[in-house]
Design a protein around this nucleic acid. Structure first.
Lengths: 227, 227
DNA sequence: AGTTCGGACACTGTATACAAGACCTAACAT
DNA sequence: ATGTTAGGTCTTGTATACAGTGTCCGAACT
């Protein structure tokens, strides 16, 4: 019997390296513009250069690192304008995800949403900030999964990581996430109200943008791309 | 002087391999589910396995190949439902791109749009079908560039390639693209009419979806995600 | 004849080795 | 003093080698 399920769950070194490097970038442990030398990373993680190289290619495709041929890879830089631009994309993509989730959600997917929210509330009460950030991303990811659109999820995963990165890079001046908004979004999805779910998601991202703009001190554009 | 411009334009083997493999997948030369053996591809393209491996990781991140650890990479499969799902994403993303393009386009970017349209019309007249398909993708790409949102472009590039792939895989039953729609979209962008531009883009994708559904014979859902 | 076990084969995962280009420094010439 | 050039070093690009795992086929056994 062809046992692909075993292989599908097997994690190779490149998986670990990719996740670890992405985590270090998103968490800010690797600063913007910092050079990523293959030898150093390989030694740091105790692997050879090959898994590191393959990871860097993936992270470049996801937009976390910039690669210049014959020069090397550096952590991408994130200007205030680029950070702001992400919110336009998020409103469009997450709005769609919320709408589709409301249309096609199953009891299992709604359950998953609620469980993430519960875990998040608990993490908030216990003051575990980095766990809160991860659970925030996990919630949005769960919305995407509830939408049941494979390509949407493929593009959402790196986008949400990038959103978390933007948050981390400007978190000093901001408070915690607003979980009541997540709750109402979850309810709209569970109720199957497409319009309401999309509106909630877009409003949530718009609120995050206002928080971002206040933090970076750039009252840029106020007009929304999707409403 | 640190001459990064030279390095930035230098194309390494992995670039060539990635583009070539993607091209063969999108064009249908590599069929769905076809196994991609590293040794064979390396020999076929006259390179070693390393550039091939790195390319495969990128193509996996873009959704063109599926990789199972310790088994290998295969060309992704594209069910009718997955093909249809892509149109939801395109309406959201390309609608946003058109709106932003209308808001922020420059004379240079509008000029680029018009030049692509002219080239496309010429290719249509000369009956060069594969060039028409490429120019169609190039037009949508140019809209994204006119929008001036870096992350939007980062995610649009593979998405448009995927759209072309979906088109190729079902093109037998369909006619050529409708260029009048591109023209009116271009005019709306040039006029700076955000609402109109987004509406045109969404309508264009919706029309493509209808054509797709007619070709695959699956009158699925008719409700649109963004209107 | 069907089934199961074993071994050969094929392919991926990982590491290492070598080649080539880029950057930096320092010596030299003007 | 400044510009330039040569050398060395660092890093990436590419190829090759080896180990480990899965697959496939055939033979032996029931």
């Amino acid at each position: 019997m062809s046992d692909l399920s075993l292989g599908a769950t097997h994690r190779t070194l490149r998986h670990e390296v990719t996740d670890e490097l992405r985590r270090r970038i998103v968490s800010g442990q690797f600063g913007q513009g910092e050079r990523l030398v293959e030898d150093r990373l390989a030694a740091l993680l105790g692997v050879s250069r090959n898994p590191v190289r393959e990871s860097i290619r993936v992270l470049a495709a996801e937009g976390f690192v910039q690669v210049v041929p014959r020069f090397g890879a550096t952590v991408a830089t994130l200007s205030a304008e680029e950070g702001d631009e992400l919110f336009d994309v998020r409103m469009a993509v997450e709005g769609l995800a919320a709408r589709l989730a409301a249309r096609k959600c199953t009891p299992a997917s709604v359950d998953r949403l609620r469980r993430v929210l519960d875990a998040a509330r608990q993490a908030v009460d216990e003051g575990r900030l980095e766990a809160v950030a991860d659970l925030n991303t996990a919630f949005h990811q769960a919305v995407g999964e509830a939408a049941g659109n494979s390509y949407l999820n493929l593009m959402m995963a790196p986008m949400l990581q990038r959103a978390q990165w933007v948050f981390t890079q400007t978190a000093a001046a901001r408070g915690p996430h607003s979980w009541s908004e997540h709750l109402s979004l979850c309810e709209a999805i569970a109720a199957g109200d497409e319009e309401e779910a999309q509106a909630r998601a877009v409003a949530h991202v718009a609120a995050a943008r206002r928080s971002f703009l206040a933090a970076v001190g750039r009252p840029n554009r106020t007009k929304h791309a999707n409403d």
